[in-house]
Design a protein around this nucleic acid. Structure first.
Lengths: 228, 228
DNA sequence: CAGTGTGATTTTTGATCATATTCTGGACGA
DNA sequence: TCGTCCAGAATATGATCAAAAATCACACTG
């Protein structure tokens, strides 16, 4: 999964050099991560072949990768769908995100160059704009980009990879929450993170990250299966 | 009822229900996990098609899954190989395994039924036999089975999945270590784990698990690139 | 004359597709 | 309600195309 692919959110890109299965994977991944596919939604190979205008083999390989990522589930029979998060799952995700992302943030605090902090801050300003405009898609993309880029600077590829997987699990549900409650209910902990990074204060960064993670995941929990 | 003739190479087991790509995946996974493929070794699709007597598509899908698992790496050009562990990777693995597996063990301590503890103990006795006989393959398989089965009883599928992935990363290197130093250098911490499980003492189990993890990973670290 | 580097050719391997086969789930009739 | 049958989707194969690596030949340099 560690593809040298740091582009910002590019909906339509030439990218002719990447093999088809890689392109399909990244497009599908983004769709799941940013909630364009709803939890529980069925995913069919032929539907994607048609929607993405690709061959069958690339779609098939992309789906296998995403199943392995936990971003899709294989329903036992030959059906594939976007998983629905259960309340217990959120507990696990909270534990895993807290430990992984706090450690990543801690490492990044001592390694990230000042220029990268500036870039993160610029990103966070865009994020504020997206929140102010109620731009849910932009909020999700920029928020992910912020965390993902921070993790890059931790110089810990295995941990970053694990953290990345976790986002795929709650992406669809987070979108549902945002769609229901809007973006204004997310006060921004990123400012504290940035402050800690500038001071190179690992404890401060880790604490801010823990709050950010907890806040986000509690939002997800609150939005699960509201009515039965 | 025409039985779809098994190509005679099959290990006889029922298993006819599993799709081919699943079988290929599990066989390849086991080979990596138990070190039958050496770190750095190249993996070719057509080589596997021949070796496993399977079609191209199942092999291809299995490889994609394993790349996503981190068990194989995509070499930028289109070559695939078994990754070689670096010293920095071991630090990350130690952190991730300690947090994940200790938490899993902690959860399992309060949930595992006594019968399952008995089964684990039986497994551990087989493990002792394997160690005494210097049976490296048996040791690796039984040790993995012990941890994997314990994780199952934590009732935390997401965390168990993360932990499972980590084993794939150091499996090949662990085999190298065992091949070099033999199995006798692994004093058995599993007894402490079992004792904690019987007492339902989560702290004890977690502590024993931490020691087991640390001990194993330090062995791996010691065996990395011994000479340059 | 031996060694080395460069370039083209050969060969292996991966990517993709079209197609045949198998299996699942639901409709239909008893 | 139950059993059978059928449509459609997924699985799996092999062929074809394209790309990269390995090989080798040859010329150039010391």
């Amino acid at each position: 999964m560690n593809v040298p692919n740091p582009p910002s959110v590019s909906p339509v890109e030439g990218a002719a050099k990447l093999p088809a299965h890689e392109q399909v994977y990244q497009r599908l991944r983004a769709q799941i991560l940013f909630g364009e596919l709803a939890p529980g939604q069925a995913v069919t190979i032929q539907g994607l072949v048609e929607a993405l205008d690709s061959g069958m083999t690339p779609v098939r390989e992309a789906i296998r990768r995403l199943i392995s990522d936990g971003a899709l589930v294989f329903q036992g029979n030959r059906r594939v769908s976007v998983p629905e998060l259960r309340a217990e799952d959120v507990d696990e995700l909270i534990f895993a995100r807290k430990t992984m992302e706090c450690e990543l943030a801690r490492r990044a605090a001592t390694r990230i160059p000042a220029s990268a902090v500036d870039a993160l801050e610029a990103l966070d300003l865009q994020l504020d704009v997206a929140i102010a405009n109620g731009d849910v898609a932009g909020y999700l993309a920029l928020n992910y980009e912020f965390h993902s880029r921070l993790n890059t600077h931790a110089d810990a590829p295995i941990l970053a990879d694990l953290a990345d997987r976790l986002w795929l699990r709650f992406g669809p549900s987070l979108r549902v929450v945002c769609g229901r409650f809007g973006t204004q209910s997310f006060p921004d902990r990123h400012k504290d993170i940035l402050e800690g990074l500038r001071k190179k204060d690992a404890d401060l960064v880790a604490l801010a990250m823990e709050r950010d993670v907890l806040q986000g995941m509690e939002q997800v929990r609150a939005g699960l299966t509201p009515i039965n």
